[in-house]
């Protein structure tokens, strides 16, 4: 069971809602993923264009926790403004703090992320910062009182998977709040790997929405997260350099 602040979830897969080919595909993907936490972005309405259907308005909101992000923010102040707007919807009090510090890599700005997290905690939000995979930063965020840490596996949307498993492991081992590996997941093996490292959950978007068959990939990711978690709980064997026979070495028929 995943526990964030005072909420508990069966699913350890958090799903983003961006860039699906159609709403129909998206609905099915969300459904088969069995995700209970969905991320959204906060934007101006296109009021001067013809009304377009909105995915959120088609969801059974009782079934999901909405996790809006502060994407688009470059400073702590901008992130706080976006978070407050999201909360004013009356639909959510959880926020994914996302303050981008590098336009090209889309890597987060650690200083502004820390500042934004502090301000949002003061405002009473459930704060989940998207951070780089820096164990010291993760600890500093935790000391502020954030409700979870979301280190990136690799740059957003890159699909490069886990490029620094050691750093993620450091964060996971020392953290007393849930660690949700966010960003960069490309395939089910990445999701399973993150969970095997001991992550509490995985957040991904493009890996599903950009797949040739997003619905099938959503199912694959669900199974990968479950398999990785079970593997972690089961405790894997030690790696060795040489072979160790699985069959008995006694009672051999050959001489």
């Amino acid at each position: 069971m995943l526990k964030i602040a005072d909420r508990t979830y069966q699913s350890r897969l958090l799903l983003g809602t961006g860039k699906y080919p159609t709403f129909e595909v998206q609905k099915k993907a969300v459904d088969v993923s069995e995700s209970e936490i969905l991320t959204f972005a906060v934007r101006r309405m296109n009021i001067f264009e013809e009304t377009q259907p909105n995915f959120l308005e088609q969801l059974d909101l009782k079934r999901y926790t909405l996790l809006p992000n502060t994407a688009g923010a470059k400073t702590a102040e901008e992130a706080v403004r976006i978070a407050k707007l999201a909360k004013a919807s009356g639909l959510c009090d959880m926020i994914k703090v996302e303050v981008i510090g590098c336009e090209r890599s889309l890597l987060p700005d650690p200083v502004e992320t820390l500042k934004a997290s502090e301000l949002l905690l003061e405002e009473g939000f459930i704060v989940l910062p998207y951070t780089s995979d820096d164990v010291v930063l993760a600890k500093r965020l935790e000391q502020l009182g954030v409700h979870g840490i979301m280190p990136g596996a690799s740059p957003i949307g890159s699909g490069r998977g886990i490029i620094n498993p050691l750093n993620l492991q450091f964060i996971i081992e020392q953290s007393d709040v849930p660690v949700i590996v966010d960003a960069g997941i490309g395939s089910p093996k990445d999701a399973a790997y993150a969970m095997e490292l001991g992550a509490d959950a995985v957040l991904l978007n493009t890996a599903v929405s950009g797949a040739e068959d997003p619905v099938k990939m959503a199912l694959a990711m669900k199974m990968a997260v479950e398999a990785g978690r079970l593997g972690y709980e089961a405790g894997r064997i030690q790696e060795k350099n040489y072979g160790v026979a699985s069959s008995p070495m006694t009672g051999m028929i050959t001489s």
Partner: peptide, 10 residues
């Protein structure tokens, strides 16, 4: 006046 809503995002 800003009219804001939720859109798809990760």
């Amino acid at each position: 006046v800003e009219l804001i809503h939720f859109v798809g995002g990760g």
